[in-house]
């Protein structure tokens, strides 16, 4: 037996090696998580302190309506980093000017922006929507008054934040979009005649059968309640419960209803993706423009269907986080 000196495997050597590797991995993973969580907390704290970039020094002067084009430019600027100043902000560093501003004042300024945008919409005869991300409410409004509102059970958002300005629905997409029924009277009449003939034959057959039976059960089958009619129409129940709303500023809103097994399965899949794949995907594509995305979950399918019904192409609205 030719065993080289020093190369003889020691008893328990492999397991010792494994222990070292796994403990190192464990320590490193814990430290990574610890570092990432603390870094996130620090950045969040910093952000809270410097929220509403560039607004601070103007508190005494107040915000005034601005052209949408200008707003877009300044919003895009502030999106790339919290330290970016708006075009018309003074030369002072943003952080210094914001330091003394109470949060309440910043909220007032933000509300001011929202009200200015809403006023623009309220002046038009068309109804519009307001999505409040904090309250998770979606409201349909006209002339500033609420026509209808829905409350989402869950709301998620990611990607580039949407600017606080009017956005327009460009289109809706669904896996099974509702289809309008097309009436062709000539064909329909032929079909009706065929059905009538069938019905007549069926009734005659039934009559023959009934002749031999008692007469008491005759009346119960004749009444048909209105809601069981199969009308040739496009109704709310024909609307999809899961779909996507696409807006002109690149925003995508996914509307989901929790009812039904397939919807629950879809939601579980989306939750897994949302917390695992999406962050990695966004991180890897962080240098490219990330489209803003929102997911709204509704407990009741009819809510989701109602939104599909009311959200017509070209509908304008505002999305904001008070």
């Amino acid at each position: 037996m030719n065993i080289e000196k020093g190369k003889e495997p020691l008893p328990g050597g492999r397991s010792r090696w494994l222990k070292v590797v796994f403990s190192a991995a464990l320590v490193m993973s814990f430290s990574f998580y610890f570092i990432s969580i603390s870094a996130a907390q620090v950045s969040r704290l910093k952000r809270t302190a410097t929220s509403a970039v560039g607004s601070g020094s103007q508190v005494q002067k107040a915000a005034v309506p601005a052209s949408p084009g200008k707003q877009k430019v300044s919003t895009t600027g502030s999106q790339t980093g919290q330290k970016t100043k708006p075009a018309s902000a003074p030369e002072k560093p943003a952080a210094a000017s914001i330091k003394g501003i109470p949060e309440a004042t910043l909220q007032v300024l933000k509300e001011n922006r929202f009200l200015e945008e809403e006023l623009k919409l309220a002046k038009t005869p068309q109804y519009y929507f307001v999505l409040n991300l904090k309250e998770r409410t979606l409201e349909l409004r006209a002339r500033g008054m609420v026509l209808k509102s829905w409350k989402a059970s869950e709301l998620r958002y990611t990607g580039k934040p949407v600017p606080l300005q009017v956005t327009t629905l460009t289109n809706k997409t669904a896996l099974n979009p509702p289809e309008r029924k097309v009436l062709n009277p000539a064909e329909q009449q032929a079909e009706e005649a065929r059905k009538a003939a069938e019905e007549k034959a069926r009734q005659e057959q039934q009559k023959k059968k009934e002749n031999g039976k008692k007469q008491d059960s005759a009346q119960s089958t004749t009444a048909t309640p209105a809601d069981t009619f199969d009308v040739e129409a496009l109704e709310i129940t024909d609307m999809p419960g899961s779909y996507e709303l696409n807006f002109d500023d690149g925003l995508r809103i996914f509307v989901r209803s929790k009812s039904g097994f397939s919807e629950k399965f879809r939601q579980t899949r989306e939750t897994l993706l949302w917390y695992t794949w999406y962050p990695v995907k966004h991180f890897l594509n962080r240098k490219s423009e990330l489209r803003p995305q929102l997911i709204l979950y509704f407990d009741n399918m009819r809510d989701a269907q109602g939104i599909y019904w009311a959200f017509i192409d070209g509908l304008k609205g505002i999305i904001w986080f008070p």
Binding site: F32, Y33, I35, S36, A39, A40, S43, R44, R47, S51, A52, V53, G54, S55, Q58, Q60, K61, A62, A63, V64, A66, S67, K70, Q71, S74, T75, S78, Q79, Q82, P86, A87, S88, A89, P90, T105, V108, L109, K110, N112, R113, E116, L133, Y157, T158, G159, K160, P161, V162, P163, L164, Y278, P279, V280, H282, F283, L284, R286, L290, W320, F321
Partner: peptide
Amino acid sequence: ALSWMHHLKLSAEWKTVWSFELDPKARVKP
């Protein structure tokens, strides 16, 4: 971990990023 930091940063921006044009001559309180 890095992705999550980035994700948290993106999420936080939805609450904080907003802007408006300012008129230094305006004297009305917000």
